[in-house]
Structures are given as structure tokens and as C-alpha cells.
């Protein structure tokens, strides 16, 4: 093909340009799918401890995305000393393997949230989300008072099915359920059952009562349940210091 025929044909020029620049990305990304240690294996007593979100946590995550929390908060603790001291253990690739899309983020106006689970009480989160400056005077985080409204969970099954299509192991029949029991243990597997999604969501909201209001399942219940889970799925006391370095 002559150079001139490319230069005089805008459509062809665009296609060929895209091919050339995508090579730069592809050579970096594609091999990671074939390298065995890209995603760490995290198993305790034969069970994987990193599991997909329960229906309530999943709705919390949706709200986290809807509100754009990722524009100010990252969820990626890098393996640097200052970050380890402030936030805790660096994030593992495995910890976001069921996240579509992942919430690593790239801007830290506020602190990293990858290990915020368990750091504060539910009461604190509720108060802080409604009015951040009532607990942290100098905060510049916006108020999110509308999170106290009722949670719409009617379409939670469809949301789980959509994620299932991209490989998240939610179960819809006995065989898949049994496979999850083997993989994650029974307690977790129950929460991954699409057919029992609403029931599970209501049960978790009732027992957790994250927002302190017993009579209603609110968006606050969902997002606090999600925040309290962040970074808690790997019990690092069960692994040697060097264990996760061996994957690199």
C-alpha cells in the first residue's frame, strides 16, 4: 500500500493509527493474562477468602460509583513504606478480582479507602456521610444526606446476573451453588445465590442495622455495609510477610 493512499484516506488512517497505538497497550496488558502469578492465590484452610459482594454490599458499591466517591478516594494501597504505615498492607491484585469496574482510582483528595473496613463504627460512617464536618472539622468532603432514603433493591438479581456474565461466580442453580460452597464455604456461598438475593439483602440489613434505623432499608445501610467490608477479606496474620512478595 502506498503511503499517499493512506494519507488521503482519513478512515483508513484512523484505523491504522489505532492499531499502531494499541500495540503499546496490548504488549503490556496481554501477557498478564498468561503469567500465573498475576493474581495471588489467597486460600485459608482450602477456602478462598476473597469473595464477591453480598447483594447489600453490591448495592452499596453501586451507590459508591453513582456518587462518584472514586473521584476523591482511591482504593489502592501501593507497596511503599509511607502508605503501609498509614493505611496498612498493600492492596493485592486478588482483592479486586471480582470488581467490575475496579475502584483503584487515581486521585486522593481524601484518604485511600482500600482498608477502611472495621476502622470506624457504623455510627461514625453514617454521621460522617451525612455531615462530614460534624466529626472532622477541617473536612472538605461533600455532605450526602440523601443517602438516608430507602434503597431500591428490586433489580438486584439483574445486577448480579450482569456481573455473572463477566465472570463473577454468583450462582443460579444447585450445581453452581455447590461449586461456591466448595470454593468459599457455605456462609459466603449462601449470599452469592441470585435466587435468594432480596431475602439475603433484607436479612443483612436487619442484622447489621448499619444506619441505626430499624424500620427501613436505606442506601446508607448499603454503602456502610460496603465500606465496612473494604480490605477485610484477607487475614494477613495468616500469611508470612514475604508470602505475597513471592508472587512478583
Amino acid at each position: 500500500m502506498k503511503h499517499e493512499s493512506i494519507e488521503t484516506n482519513a478512515g483508513l488512517l484512523i484505523v491504522l493509527t489505532l492499531i499502531v497505538i494499541s500495540i503499546g497497550g496490548l504488549v503490556e496488558i496481554v501477557p498478564l493474562y498468561f503469567i500465573e502469578s498475576t493474581i495471588e492465590k489467597v486460600e485459608v484452610e482450602g477456602k478462598e477468602t476473597i469473595h464477591p459482594y453480598s447483594p447489600l454490599e453490591l448495592r452499596g458499591r453501586d451507590i459508591y460509583q453513582r456518587e462518584g466517591c472514586y473521584t476523591c478516594h482511591s482504593q489502592m494501597i501501593r507497596p511503599f513504606r509511607d502508605e503501609a504505615l498509614r493505611y496498612g498492607h498493600y492492596s493485592l491484585a486478588a482483592e479486586s478480582k471480582f470488581d467490575h469496574p475496579f475502584q483503584w482510582g487515581s486521585k486522593r483528595t481524601g484518604p485511600d479507602l482500600a482498608r477502611v473496613g472495621g476502622k470506624y463504627s457504623n455510627e461514625w460512617h453514617v454521621q460522617h456521610l451525612i455531615a462530614p464536618r460534624s466529626v472532622v472539622k477541617e473536612s472538605i468532603m461533600p455532605n450526602y444526606p440523601w443517602l438516608m432514603k430507602s434503597l431500591n433493591y428490586k433489580n438486584v438479581r439483574d445486577r448480579m446476573r450482569a456481573l455473572k456474565m463477566v465472570g463473577v461466580p454468583y450462582s443460579e442453580n444447585t450445581a453452581e451453588y455447590e461449586a461456591n460452597v466448595k470454593r468459599f464455604g457455605e456462609d459466603v456461598a449462601k449470599n452469592l445465590d441470585i435466587l435468594r438475593a432480596e431475602e439475603n439483602l433484607l436479612a443483612q440489613a436487619a442484622s447489621g442495622n448499619y444506619d441505626g434505623k430499624a424500620d427501613d432499608v436505606t442506601e446508607m445501610d448499603a454503602i456502610v455495609a460496603y465500606l465496612q467490608l473494604l480490605g477485610t477479606m484477607v487475614d494477613f496474620s495468616k500469611f508470612d510477610d514475604g508470602h505475597f512478595a513471592d508472587f512478583r
Binding site: P79, R81, D240, D241, G242, A245, F247, R248
Partner: peptide, 22 residues
């Protein structure tokens, strides 16, 4: 760096091992 069982381990350059060492 020193492994959990007290031995020293030398490894190729990577940020995780570097962090461990630091």
C-alpha cells in the same frame, strides 16, 4: 530480606520485596 523463619532471602528487583526490606 529476612523471611519468617529467620533465613535471609535474596530476590530479583520488585516493589513488594523492596518494601519488605525497607
Amino acid at each position: 530480606y529476612t523471611t519468617a523463619d529467620g533465613k535471609t532471602k535474596t530476590t530479583h528487583w520488585n516493589t513488594r520485596a523492596l518494601l519488605l526490606k525497607e
